[in-house]
Design a protein around this nucleic acid. Sequence first.
DNA 1: AGAGCCGCTGAATCCTTTT
DNA 2: CAAAAGGATTCAGCGGCTC
Lengths: 270, 270
Amino acid sequence: MIRARREALGCHSLIRGDCLSVMRRMPIGSVDVVVTSPPYNLGLAYRSYKDSLSEENYLTWMEAICRKIARVMRDDGSFFLNIAGSSAQPWLPFELMVRLREIFNLQNHISWVKSIAVGEITYGHFKPVNSSRYVNRNHEHVFHLTKRGDVEIDRLGAGVPFTDKTNIPRRQHGEDRRCRGDTWYIPYETVRSKTARFSHPSTFPVALPERCIRLHGVRSDMVVLDPFMGTGTSLIAAESLGVRGIGIESDTGYVRIARKRLRSMLQQTG
Amino acid sequence: MIRARREALGCHSLIRGDCLSVMRRMPIGSVDVVVTSPPYNLGLAYRSYKDSLSEENYLTWMEAICRKIARVMRDDGSFFLNIAGSSAQPWLPFELMVRLREIFNLQNHISWVKSIAVGEITYGHFKPVNSSRYVNRNHEHVFHLTKRGDVEIDRLGAGVPFTDKTNIPRRQHGEDRRCRGDTWYIPYETVRSKTARFSHPSTFPVALPERCIRLHGVRSDMVVLDPFMGTGTSLIAAESLGVRGIGIESDTGYVRIARKRLRSMLQQTG
DNA sequence: AGAGCCGCTGAATCCTTTT
DNA sequence: CAAAAGGATTCAGCGGCTC
């Protein structure tokens, strides 16, 4: 067993190691927001990705991780879990949700819309699929899980302008801002712009964790954790909002990329 | 026990009765498409709608209905199930999906987007919720369930124009049409237009069942079934596509409204 | 203007295992 | 041993983007 390796970058922490054992050593109730996009096929050895045993293993593994997440989370913390179904595992997100019922409350369910056609106009990018039975996949789930179920959020933090401007004076805050709701249009970065940066199979757009943190509510002393840091998108989001981020990743190569991305961002801003 | 009462309207059938017992008498494998939006709080007596017993009852009841749906469906048929979570029952759609796993395959999962903000512009209407912990609900689920899991669908049937028109000559069909994907923007009818017609708590827009039927593929001899007809929106969709519809509804008042809607539509067209 | 690229593809095929 | 089942590899196609 390799010991976890921690490094500091600005106010952030990048930890190379297994998130399960790293979180076990973290202080209880020390994290405000957990935002992550867990990998499908990691953390366990399995034969075929279609057999039910591997799914069972995956779910058990994820459940264990989520218990550790609950452990390090504050009682008024938020856990944003990004996950998508696939044609091979269409039930996975739902099975997982049912399992997490004994650990968390499902406070909100956000649909991350990567592409949508409104009338004749298509917004966003998507990866077309060649099939006679499946349609293109243009959305993923973002589950907002909390320990208590009644965690106060900052609805206007990730808000949008009113369509009907007469609403502005009617609200006490007096801003042109309303709650966005649970459909979040965030286009995927294009293929090219992605390769131009750093390649990672499951890089979600930085706007996604940013919006999650904003929805929970930004405070200067808050801590954001991503147990599956990948190339560090969540840390980029934390840095852009001026809050402290902790990222855990087992793959050394990804940690290197995350370090590079975060460092170049820190140099730009200050 | 009141006997079911069947009436014909054009090529369609409106049946007043309990869908469970009505479907039991229908011929096996006689339906091409089932599209429905089941009610949350019907079909069983329950105390508080937050206690787990009532949820358990609801799920058991829904499971029984879905078994009957599978019975009357053709092997290459499609079942489009529209359901939404609520703040009181956020887990309901996922629990139901897990239960249905032993009856159906989940071939596609469509997100019905009622409203979405793209940049500064908001499309569609929504019912704002005043809460410090919940965001507005702007989407619902449409689960595409099939018996075999490999049912061929008409991806272009519910298609949209290409963004990049150079794709047109590249496709053999030569049309300006691509697969829409699994994010369906369908604005809800506004409050005004709803009350102006006929009131029903869970009336979905006619475009929703229409698009479902189109995605399955329209054939002149096909049969569409809605076991929870309500005010007959699915039958309106069937009629607009020129296919036969069967609607079952236990509430006499709703059957009356459905009859009226369908009749006025039949008079308009011919 | 047009050709090629890319993907937490899917279908088809090949090639192992089992019965 | 033939046949069937199923895993693993290959192929092909979608559709917006980039060159």
